[in-house]
């Protein structure tokens, strides 16, 4: 098996997708993962220091 074949085997895409059911909410796990990643990115963007921020604050 080629290297990308082995990599693809880690993420089997030929099976049925997994879904989360909660009351009227019906969402695929893949979409939940993407939404969670966006929330994490958003929080990280607010909290992580930006390179050169202090220098720019001193010389606006």
């Amino acid at each position: 098996m080629s290297w990308y074949g082995s990599f693809a085997a880690l993420l089997p895409l030929d099976n049925l997708g997994h879904y989360l059911h909660w009351h009227f909410i019906d969402i695929s796990i893949a979409n939940v993962v993407v939404i969670a990643l966006m929330v994490i990115t958003f929080i990280a963007a607010l909290l992580l220091p930006f390179p050169g921020r202090q220098r720019r604050k001193e010389n606006p």
């Binding site: 963007a45 607010l46 930006f50 050169g52 921020r53 720019r56 604050k57």
Partner: peptide, 12 residues
């Protein structure tokens, strides 16, 4: 740009 733009939230 103004100094307040030095934040990751402005890169998106």
């Amino acid at each position: 740009q103004p100094s307040y733009v030095s934040s990751w939230i402005y890169v998106f």
